[in-house]
Write a protein that binds this DNA or RNA. Sequence first.
DNA 1: AATAAAAAGTGACAAATGCCACTTTTTATT
DNA 2: AATAAAAAGTGGCATTTGTCACTTTTTATT
Lengths: 232, 232
Amino acid sequence: MEREKPIQDCRCQGCNFKSIPASILNNEELKILCNNSVHIEFQPGEKIIKQGSFTTNIVYLTQGLAKLHMTGPLNKDEILKIAKSSVFIGVPSVFADRIFHYSVSALTKCEACFIDFNSFEQLVKDNGTFAHELIISLSEDVIGHFHRCVNKTQKNKTGYIAEILLDFADNYFESNDFTLPLSRAEFGELIGSSRETVIRILQEFINDGLIKDEGKKITIIEKEKLEKISER
Amino acid sequence: MEREKPIQDCRCQGCNFKSIPASILNNEELKILCNNSVHIEFQPGEKIIKQGSFTTNIVYLTQGLAKLHMTGPLNKDEILKIAKSSVFIGVPSVFADRIFHYSVSALTKCEACFIDFNSFEQLVKDNGTFAHELIISLSEDVIGHFHRCVNKTQKNKTGYIAEILLDFADNYFESNDFTLPLSRAEFGELIGSSRETVIRILQEFINDGLIKDEGKKITIIEKEKLEKISER
DNA sequence: AATAAAAAGTGACAAATGCCACTTTTTATT
DNA sequence: AATAAAAAGTGGCATTTGTCACTTTTTATT
């Protein structure tokens, strides 16, 4: 499998990227990013960012779903978050010490833009409003992580799995009908438990008629009941 | 118990606060912060920040230890982090949506500086280097939180309690001899388990001669063994 | 110093979950 | 289409941990 396949050197101006913090950049500033970035395509399963690697790039996910995952004390993988385009991935690592503290892997077909960090950093320093937007975006990340962390430890596994299914439906696919982008083992890594536990709980949901599951296609049938379950 | 006791209206220039991101502010900029901030003292147990409250302040902890804690789904409290002066607390909440998403309570005697958010925000926009430093500090927070989250879910309770004891010794008190600033119940909220589990595991450590515990005074005796334990 | 209140500690038991070993099904490769 | 490899599913058992109900100790208050 080839790792890098540049698509086009510059398409920032028409890019989704323009939406969030970068929306406040003027054309000249955008051009700076353009001239210092590369757009790359990834197949499902491919690694976009490798934990432990040194970096000089800010990565922006323009297309697809990816998992942020970290190898913990004694080699168990844990999924920290599912990222959906269009977002920055790995920003904290780059600003903290230029070493990626977690990996990012494509769950679906993905496209990502690798932006030279020096150019990006200069923009932060020169354009306070841009920096301000970046701070807001980082802040929302932190709050999100805190909530996820509390839910993960306080809810029982059944409740947390229900929550994640609803999260996929409402926030990632905007449909009660979607293709689960995770294997059972990965699902386990996301909720912090074993593959077997995930299988058993999903089976329960299927038996109780709360969801349907054909292959990887999930359909949420009894949404209200699932919401009830997700609250404990 | 009185809640607010202003100490002095302006002492930013001699304040620890000057150290981190604010160290790059010039005197005039510091004065802006000065003129728009209040310094307040807190007794152990007092709430510095209340979850759910609306805010127009950035809070900087100048003295003491405090816990960041969040009430989760169905009213169980969870400690997200122990903050040690000198640090900002609650920055992400203010930038995200002006609503505190977690509480902060004093564990020891604390002092905190409440800085008017508008003045602070203006500084961020005007001084790119200041914004840059703030981004770095937020980034380190995120990375730290990820590591904590992974350790918490992957280690067993015994290992995680060992890790926290070592963390107190190495990073908070810089001594193998310290006064635990948490009740057993709070310790449970920190590791995501029950009071009883904490008591039993600490008892084990005492019986095995790894630590000594007189009242609230903890002494780490067998540090190497504790480190071994903390790795699983 | 006496009393009340809070925190710490204990034992028994049940429930949740991890781990192991194995089978079946699905997917990918030749 | 055949074969290999990966993922999903299953059952049993051991372990961890939470919950409950209670006692003892420590701390705070009058």
